[in-house]
């Protein structure tokens, strides 16, 4: 049984006198222990709001949640505030994108780390401080006892993100949700942080839900990948099949529009036309149809369903999927390697 099982999650923002806005609808995925699951998509696709919903961090007013999220037998979405607070820390923890704004600027790092140990592990005084120092040491912060006394602004970006990871893993959570954990960092620091996350998953068996827009990060880290577009999963597969044969035109287009370090100079990119604003409601058809190179009238007849057009476990929400043999003719370099 998976550690976390999200089933038909939907998130709708409501406001009086305004039309409801559906941010996420019908999103389902599982996270197993020791598994890294990726939620990938561009801004506005609903990936961050999904993570906030799972952590119970969305406001109760003005938000309507639907579906289920079972975490080891507990339904997260309907949990009361107090129960949710007990879940956080020991069971679930989250790492945010911007390490500076997720740390309290007027409280030393040490106090912020020990606070968690006190709240969730009942540790006190010296013992908590010692444990905090060993946590910072574990995530690779040099001279941890001195750092504990420092304030967030005295740490570099990479160091802050490490401190945040230390806080997230302080109570050995069983599921870690990382929302763009390396987007604000330089690539060499990003490599350090990703290595650290990999270690955590391998050694502790933590489940990791990785939310990112960077397909390069996904290729290196995730076991299972879900591509989101306009609030729905459009493609879901294991890492290798997904990159070898991106089947939804959106995933296919995304991969074609990224300049690759190992591609020869002068090879022209094939961008996806238009922008996320050019979309139709999922109820009328495929939201991606207005930007799609393969669309037909069939795309405008109701919501497409997730199907497995060419391989088991490789699910695609498209009526005209880009099948590997057909795409090969288009001289796609991603497939050339497979």
């Amino acid at each position: 049984m998976p550690l976390l099982s999200v089933d038909e999650l939907s998130i709708t923002f409501t406001a009086r006198g305004r039309r409801d806005v559906s941010a996420v609808s019908g999103v389902s995925f599982d996270v197993d222990q020791g598994q890294v699951v990726g939620l990938v998509g561009e801004s506005g696709c609903g990936k961050s709001v999904t993570s906030l919903a799972l952590m119970g961090l969305l406001p109760k007013r003005g938000v309507r949640l639907g579906g289920r999220a079972d975490f080891d037998g507990t339904e997260l979405l309907s949990l009361s505030r107090d129960k949710m607070r007990d879940m956080r820390g020991r069971q679930l923890a989250m790492i945010f994108q911007d390490p500076l704004s997720s740390l309290n600027p007027v409280v030393p790092i040490g106090v912020q780390v020990t606070e968690i140990l006190k709240r969730h592990r009942g540790m006190k005084g010296e013992a908590a401080r010692k444990e905090a120092a060993s946590l910072l040491d574990r995530v690779g912060i040099p001279d941890p006892t001195r750092r504990l006394k420092e304030y967030p602004h005295q740490l570099s970006g990479g160091m802050r993100q490490r401190a945040l990871i230390a806080m997230a893993v302080a109570c050995a959570p069983r599921l870690l949700i990382a929302d763009e954990p390396t987007t604000a960092l330089d690539v060499t620091i990003q490599a350090q942080i990703l290595e650290l996350l990999k270690e955590l998953v391998d050694q502790e068996g933590t489940g990791l839900l990785m939310i990112t827009h960077d397909l390069g990060v996904v290729a290196g880290l995730c076991d299972q990948v879900n591509v989101l577009y306009a609030g729905r999963v459009v493609e879901s597969a294991e890492r290798r099949p997904l990159f070898a044969a991106p089947t939804h035109p959106y995933s296919h287009g995304l991969l074609g529009s990224i300049p690759r370090l190992d591609a020869p100079r002068g090879e022209r990119l094939s961008p996806i036309r238009g922008s996320i604003n050019d979309r139709i409601a999922w109820s009328d058809g495929c939201a991606f149809a207005p930007r799609c190179d393969f669309y037909t009238m069939e795309c405008l007849t109701g919501t497409p369903q997730l199907t497995e057009p060419h391989a088991a476990g490789h699910r695609v929400r498209c009526v005209n999927p880009v099948l590997p043999d057909a795409a090969g003719a288009a001289a796609d370099r991603t497939e050339a390697g497979a």
Binding site: V187, A191, D214, L261, A338
Partner: peptide
Amino acid sequence: ALMSAVPVPDPEVE
């Protein structure tokens, strides 16, 4: 070091 840190969207390479 910089080049080795740039993620490439290809699991085979990664």
